Simulated assay, not measured.
Amino acid sequence: MDDTERRTVGSRGQITIPKELRERFGIAGGDDVRVREADGKIVVEPTPSRAELAEGYRRRAEHHRELAEEFAGTSREANDVLGDVPAWEDE
């Protein structure tokens, strides 16, 4: 298959995904796919599995934990250098 293949959109808005692409991306008849717009283009992609979603959420939670630890360390360093900041007084 070359980079592009022409497809005709049916009266109900349907197209057939080329077999080579279905095989490459693991899409079989009856599978759910996501259809979205990105950068002015229509993107069709396999729907992530529950395991893939769970792994993504685990990675994101770990990243947020690492950021929180980094900010806490930065805050401690700032306190060490600057000392306690006096309370704001109402004017």
Rank of each mutant, 00 (worst) to 15 (best):
E55S: 08
V9G: 00
E69T: 01
I17C: 04
G83N: 06
G26Y: 02
R6S: 15
A54T: 12
E91F: 13
E89Y: 10
I15Q: 02
V33G: 03
Y57P: 08
M1L: 10
E91P: 14
G13H: 00
R12P: 00
D32P: 01
A51T: 11
R65P: 04
S75H: 09
D84K: 14
S11E: 15
K41A: 11
L82W: 09
W88F: 13
N79Y: 15
A87K: 05
F71T: 11
D31I: 00
G56E: 07
D2F: 05
D32G: 03
A38S: 14
R6E: 13
R24P: 07
F25S: 07
E20P: 00
E66V: 03
W88P: 08
A87I: 06
R22A: 12
G40M: 05
A38H: 11
G56S: 10
R58P: 00
G30A: 00
T74N: 13
R76Q: 07
A28H: 14
P86R: 04
A51I: 01
W88I: 07
P86C: 00
G30Q: 01
E89G: 07
R59E: 08
D80L: 15
L53Y: 03
A28R: 15
F25Y: 13
R60H: 14
D80G: 06
I27H: 06
L21A: 08
D39Q: 13
E23N: 12
D2V: 11
W88Y: 12
T47Q: 13
G29E: 09
E77I: 14
V9M: 02
P46I: 06
V33C: 03
E20G: 04
E69W: 05
L53H: 07
F25T: 03
R59C: 04
D39R: 11
E20M: 06
K19D: 09
T4C: 11
E66T: 10
V44W: 00
E66W: 01
R24D: 09
E55V: 05
N79W: 14
E89K: 14
D84H: 14
E23H: 10
F25P: 11
R76Y: 08
R24L: 09
L21E: 07
E66K: 03
K41I: 05
R12L: 13
H63I: 08
G10C: 02
Q14V: 04
E66D: 11
E23P: 06
R12W: 09
P48W: 01
R24V: 09
R60K: 15
I17H: 05
L67T: 11
E77Q: 15
R7I: 03
L21D: 12
S11C: 02
D32F: 12
